[in-house]
Every structure is written in structure tokens, then in C-alpha cells.
Design a protein around this nucleic acid. Structure first.
Lengths: 222, 222
DNA sequence: GTCTATATGAAGATAGAC
DNA sequence: GTCTATCTTCATATAGAC
């Protein structure tokens, strides 16, 4: 028995739209939990099968290999991330500050809503072969670029003021990534509140005029 | 062959003071590299032995088990982190802003100087049994608490203004942790510059009056 | 699709010579 | 301390009946 869990979350949380029907979906969900808790290499096909209520051989009727299970989870995770960020940006207007708020709320929201998916998709991507991982890797690169473009546009307009654009992107992206490891629904703040606070921190990193929480705590809206 | 490396760094960087003399040290360093690149479960005793230039059985003359190798690396990593933060705080005076700068520079500096050690000590700690991991886990808890105390003290003095103290700690700590995964000595900024920029971002998260980089870019020092 | 049974290799660890 | 040789268990994956 280990001294610390790899992540705090205990429920799998894989949406119906992420999950194929029947045994295929049950197996995928079991793999998600075990990959998240023990890592890709540390979770065995036997364990995944047992957690799915089938025998190990049955698994190979649905997925050609354990690696294909990981590839599907990485793909689903990054697609959920992209879907969430895109939807948020479509509702955010043209102000770079609003766009950062939208991006960070979606980014953090994905990591609180699907912590296991985020841990696996980000933290186990390296275990995929070039063939199975290339598509997902490209999705990840694009997600970073979207934020970088927003930040750069804000800098160009004089709305943001940062010592280094790319380091702001790594800082904002990195603090959001980590949320998947410690967040649980039992946390004193709910996911919305965490996302709001992190969005405020992102704006502060960017040297942007405060929009959000400060309005409530100080009453000095713009 | 994988599509992405788990971390960008390629050199092991284990200081003489971290490393026992003789074969014991060579084995520890080989384990560090392999645990960092493939994870604890993904690196085999055979590989570690081969990378050390010894046979697998020889390894057991120095460490009672593979898990003991990981335990030593986790301990060394967290002790280096504590040592670095302590030294920085002893030179930082009593102003919470200076203390945050000192903490973040040391925190980020540890993650740029010893990326493999940081990745293993943080990212593989969960693989340790309660018995072997308890001491290291306590070190990690204390490190977080040190930052939390600094932030709380700044808030109490009215120097910092944050919507949520603990979320500021997770944000600042988390963005620093991630540095170990992407930083290499070939990066366009050197480690000092990265640490400085991240310290500035931490101050901004905390709503502190700018001290550092702004002075150089704007000339409005306090 | 799911099973039983198993092939094949690699894992962590140990015995005992030198 | 280091080696050769090996024990035992577990890994991923497959064959073929139902």
C-alpha cells in the first residue's frame, strides 16, 4: 500500500459520449482508473480485465493491445480539452482578457471535471509509440498555441504586460495541469470557484487590469 | 520509440553530495535517469544494472530492493529542495515579498538544476510503500506549508491580496513543479532568468507591489 | 463475444562460487 | 563486491472451443 495516492480523485468520471457502448466502454473506463492510479506500465491487463468483469482474453476482442487502450484515452482526453476550450472561446468575445478568462476556466474546468482523464492524457502520453501518439501530441501542441496566441495578441494590444510571453503560457498552463492531481469534489471550493480563482491568477500573471473577483471584493469595476 | 520524452532534460545531474561513493553512486545515478525517463515501474533492474556497468545481482549488494533505490532518490530530491529553500529564506529578510521571491527562486531553481530528481521525487513518490515513503511525504508536506505560511503572513500584513490563500499556494507551487518537465539548459533563457520571471509571476498572483523585473523594464522602483 | 488454457518472455530477487 | 546461474512470479498476448 502506497503512502500517497497519485491523484486525489476517486471517481472515474467518463462521460457517455467519451465511452463506447457495451463491454468496450466498461473496459475503457476500468483502464482509465487503473492507468490514472498506477500509471500505464503499473496497471496490468489482468487487473483491467478483472475490474471490467471479464477475462483477460476478452479484452483483446475489443482492443488490439494495451497500448491501444492508452491511445484511445489520450485522444479522448485531449479532444475533451479542445472541445471545452473551443466552446468557451466562442462565447468570449474579442477582448484578450475575456479570452484568457474563458481559456483558463475551460482548462481548469476540464481538469476538475475529468481529473483521471487529464492525468492519463497528459502524464502517460510519453508511453505511447510514435505511431499511436502522434495525433494526440499534435492536439496538445495546438492547445498550448491557442493560449500563446491569446497572450501575444493581448501584449500587442497593450492589454497584457509580461516579462516573457512563453513563460506566462507555461506558468498558466502548468498551474492548471496540476489541479487534476489534488482536486476532489470534496474540496472546500467547488470546481467553478477554483476555475474563477485560477482565471484571476492568470490575469494577474499577465499584468491585466482586474475584471472578475476584484470587482466583488473591492467594488472597483471598470 | 515514444513520440514525446517524459521530460526534456537529458543529463542526469546528481551532485557529488547526493551520490554515495563507488558503485552505489553509479547505480543510484543510473536509476535516477531511468526512473525519470520511463517511470519507476517502467525501468527494470536489468536496465539499471546495465546502465551502471554491473550485473543485476550486484545491485542487491548495495540496495535491498528496487524500491529502496526509489526511496533514496525521493529522499535526496526532497532534501535538496528543503536545503535550497531554507538557504534562500535565511538570506531574505522579513518582508513577505522578499520571502516569496526567495522561495520561488529556490523552488524553480531546484527544478531547473535537478529536473530528473524533481520529476522522480514528485512524480514517483506514489509508488513507494507507506513504510519507505512516509518520511519523504512529510518533507513534501512541510515544503508546502512553508510557502503557505509566507503567503498567510503577507495577507495578514496587508502586503498580499489574494482571493484564496491555499489556491495561491497550489498555483505557485504547481507552475514551478512543471518547470522540471520542459526546462533544458538549451532553453533560450537560462535558469536564473526563468526563476526571476516565475518569482515575478508569483508576486503578481499574490497581488503584491512589483519589486523586481518591473524596476528594470519601467524604472519605477519603490 | 466470451471463455479456458497456454505460449513466451521479462520481471524482481536469491544462491553460492570467486 | 561482483559474478554466473537460476528460482518464481507475473507480464502481454494468442489459440481455439462454445
Amino acid at each position: 500500500m502506497s503512502v500517497v495516492r497519485r491523484l486525489a480523485a476517486t471517481s472515474t468520471v467518463l462521460l457517455p459520449e467519451h465511452k463506447p457502448p457495451g463491454s468496450r466502454g466498461v473496459i475503457l473506463e476500468a483502464a482509465l482508473r487503473l492507468f490514472a492510479e498506477r500509471g500505464y506500465v503499473g496497471a496490468s491487463v489482468r487487473e483491467i480485465a478483472e475490474a471490467s468483469g471479464v477475462k483477460p482474453a476478452t479484452l483483446y476482442a475489443h482492443y488490439p493491445s494495451k497500448e491501444h487502450l492508452l491511445a484511445e484515452l489520450c485522444r479522448v482526453g485531449h479532444e475533451e480539452h479542445r472541445r471545452s476550450v473551443r466552446a468557451a472561446l466562442l462565447n468570449s468575445g474579442t477582448d484578450p482578457r475575456d479570452q484568457v478568462i474563458a481559456y483558463v476556466r475551460a482548462h481548469v474546468g476540464m481538469h476538475t471535471a475529468f481529473p483521471m482523464l487529464a492525468v492519463v492524457a497528459n502524464g502517460e502520453l510519453h508511453a505511447l509509440s510514435a505511431e499511436l501518439g502522434a495525433a494526440t501530441f499534435e492536439l496538445r501542441r495546438q492547445s498550448e498555441q491557442v493560449l500563446a496566441d491569446i497572450v501575444q495578441r493581448g501584449v500587442d494590444r497593450g492589454v497584457f504586460d509580461v516579462p516573457h510571453v512563453w513563460l506566462a503560457v507555461t506558468a498558466i498552463g502548468g498551474m492548471g495541469l496540476r489541479v487534476a492531481y489534488w482536486y476532489t469534489p470534496e474540496y472546500e471550493l467547488d470546481a467553478e470557484q477554483v476555475a474563477d480563482v485560477y482565471a484571476e491568477y492568470a490575469l494577474r500573471i499577465l499584468g491585466a487590469a482586474p475584471l472578475n473577483l476584484r470587482r466583488e471584493t473591492r467594488g472597483d469595476s471598470s
